[in-house]
Nucleic acid binder design. Structure first.
Length: 256
DNA sequence: TGGGTGACGACGC
DNA sequence: AGCGTCGCCACCC
């Protein structure tokens, strides 16, 4: 069908066809493209279109990636011939720069979008429970749905869904496997051995007598110091209040 | 329309 | 402590 349209155009009278006609049409239509880029978990494929990065997967067989992409998004993706501002931004971010990367969430449902946008707020060296995301979104019973939405994150790493973990502070699932998730979080500065030492026995919060706040043990403000002197392990919010502690405004350990 | 599925969580042994 | 069960919600047929 598309072929015959091209044929009709090609034979239009008095109108020479530019050699790169096909490329021009694809550019105008916005054909999706991809490159490989280095990341914390090795080489990845990064695909994008006019609106921003549309997909990220671990690099491997190009055919497999292209057919996965077509299956998932219903569009064709081809290797890029040159860098683009969007791929350049993604490359920089994957390399560790704190830059904004436009993301195309076009195929996501409104709920999935909200979940991914919330996950995008979680900064390095931090982790939050699935239930925390649900609560922040105003649907505290939708924790399971939050997990499903994160599981469909089209752009892992760029939207750091690996920073959402289980309420018991075990890492939980991940597209690239739980081990990879744990490795990523450790590389960002979370010390799971220390976290496990604290949470063993049902401790859920960490109080800091110095600044008078209590946090999730995976809050970046305490993550590198969990278990050191000056911190008290707490089993409940009541215990925190008994110590005269107020909730940390960064990790917001309880509902506002 | 309705039943099945899943990166969860609380509870009971 | 670890496992099964069951409720929950959004999504997909």
């Amino acid at each position: 069908m598309g072929e015959s349209n091209f044929g009709a155009l090609r034979t239009a009278p008095n109108r020479p066809v530019a050699p790169d006609f096909t490329a021009q049409v694809f550019t105008r239509i916005g054909l999706d493209r991809y490159v490989t880029a280095a990341s914390a978990i090795g080489e990845v494929f990064v695909a994008w279109r006019s609106g921003g990065v549309s997909a990220l997967r671990i690099a491997g067989d190009a055919m497999t990636f292209e057919s996965w992409y077509g299956e998932r998004f219903g569009r064709r993706v081809v290797p890029a011939r040159e860098e683009d501002p969007i791929s350049a931004a993604a490359r920089a971010k994957l390399g560790g720069d704190e830059v904004e990367v436009p993301i195309d969430l076009g195929e996501c449902s409104p709920f999935e979008r909200r979940v991914l946008e919330k996950a995008a707020e979680i900064t390095r060296c931090n982790a939050r429970p699935y239930g925390w995301v649900a609560r922040e979104l105003g649907v505290p019973d939708a924790t399971r749905a939050v997990g499903n939405a994160l599981g469909r994150n089209p752009v892992p790493l760029l939207i750091p869904c690996h920073r959402v973990i289980r309420t018991d502070f075990t890492v939980g699932g991940y597209v690239f496997g739980s081990e990879t998730k744990r490795t990523l979080l450790e590389a960002e500065g979370l010390d799971f051995a220390a976290i496990e030492r604290v949470t063993r026995g049902g401790f859920r919060y960490v109080g800091d007598d110095d600044d008078g706040t209590f946090c999730l043990p995976t809050c970046g403000t305490v993550a590198t110091r969990v278990g050191s002197p000056g911190f008290v392990a707490l089993r409940s919010v009541d215990e925190a209040h008994a110590h005269g502690l107020r909730p940390c405004s960064t990790c917001r350990p309880i509902a506002a």
